[in-house]
């Protein structure tokens, strides 16, 4: 691991240098910018010379869009009758060049690891992991909606990052944590961090809230059916409008739907984000819907995050970024849901 000390100007310069040879993305700054042609909503290309500032708290859009694009072209085909390969599906050509995501927070970096539990055998996600270098910023302060420490993360955590940038008083310390991260810093004229910087960083890390999920872990031992039948879902379901806002801004929601699109004889099969909040999600062709009620769908989302996923993989499927808390149209607050679930008899 290599550690460097950077001023703001040096940091900007480093990003600028990267952007000459690679695509570098950062969270869209200020008011939502019109998406650039090749950017997902909420992200923009870095390297335009503007100083890199990362607002407190998680970025508006989560990092999952880079590993789990919306949409992902899975296969392509032709439906032209003249084509001998008519209706033959072929793997879609994929970009393989490295892309750099700058400015994600430790919670998002952790979400990449969590999603990797179900997606460890998914070719597209794995290819995305290989080609995406993540340059994260640790959090100097937690927002009032942040609760990463209670979900097993920490504002100063580096898990999942290739380079972790931490702010000291007037400068930054960049830790190149992985070979991919070291490769990015190689060849750049960077000042190695002094012992005093390392000490200050260690002190920050020691001082910040530590992962503490002891209280939540009691959920793992609870009987599934008791939680499933808890009365709290009724009220939640009544407030919920069943939009997909929470699931689409959530870094750890990973459901997808698959669909074919054909335009003038050229077709592709795509997968795109789906939400268990939508009635169509579980609707059978017969018209039967196992989760036909709003309440059942709301319950499914929270139970998946807090019970089904941990039962299957261990950790909770939530990193405590607080995006859903901020943006839920009807103020369904997962922290309240957790608190209420903990008190279910």
């Amino acid at each position: 691991m290599k550690v460097f000390r950077l001023s703001q100007a040096e940091l900007d310069d480093m990003v600028q240098q990267w952007s000459t040879t690679r695509r570098v993305y950062r969270p869209a700054t200020g008011r939502q910018q019109p998406a650039q042609a090749d950017c997902a909503p909420g992200w923009e290309r870095a390297g335009d010379g503007a100083p890199l500032t990362v607002a407190a708290g998680p970025s508006k859009a989560s990092v999952k869009t880079f590993l789990f694009p919306q949409p992902e072209t899975m296969q392509t085909y032709s439906l032209k009758s003249s084509d001998p390969d008519r209706a033959l599906l072929k793997e879609a050509a994929k970009a393989a060049d490295k892309q750099i995501v700058v400015g994600l927070r430790p919670c998002d970096a952790r979400s990449v690891q969590l999603n990797n539990l179900p997606y460890r055998d998914d070719p597209y996600y794995q290819a995305g992991l290989v080609r995406t270098v993540m340059v994260g910023f640790t959090c100097k302060a937690m927002c009032s909606t942040c609760f990463c420490d209670q979900m097993g993360g920490s504002p100063m955590a580096t898990e999942g990052l290739d380079i972790a940038v931490s702010q000291l008083d007037d400068s930054f310390v960049a830790e190149a944590l992985t070979p991919a991260g070291e490769e990015l810093t190689a060849g750049l004229d960077l000042t190695p961090a002094a012992d005093s910087d390392l000490k200050a960083l260690a002190a920050l890390r020691k001082d910040c809230p530590q992962p503490d999920n002891a209280r939540l872990d009691t959920l793992k031992g609870r009987d599934l059916n008791t939680l499933y039948k808890a009365p709290l879902w009724q009220g939640l379901g009544e407030s919920c409008i069943n939009c997909g806002a929470c699931t689409f801004i959530c870094p750890t929601c990973y459901c997808f739907d698959v669909q074919d699109e054909v335009v003038r004889g050229a077709g592709r099969r795509i997968r795109y984000w789906d939400s268990c909040m939508f009635p169509l999600y579980s609707l059978h062709t017969t018209g039967h819907n196992p989760r036909g009620l709003k309440m059942q769908r709301t319950r499914n989302r929270f139970m998946h995050k807090l019970k089904y996923f941990p039962d299957r993989f261990g950790p909770f499927s939530c990193v405590g970024c607080g995006r859903c808390v901020q943006d839920c149209p009807v103020n369904i607050d997962i922290r309240e849901v957790i608190s209420d679930l903990l008190t279910v008899e």
């Binding site: 694009p69 085909y77 032709s78 032209k80």
Partner: peptide, 10 residues
């Protein structure tokens, strides 16, 4: 984030 540069032959 990437423009689909390569297309099928058709």
């Amino acid at each position: 984030m990437t423009t689909q540069t390569t297309q099928t032959s058709s």
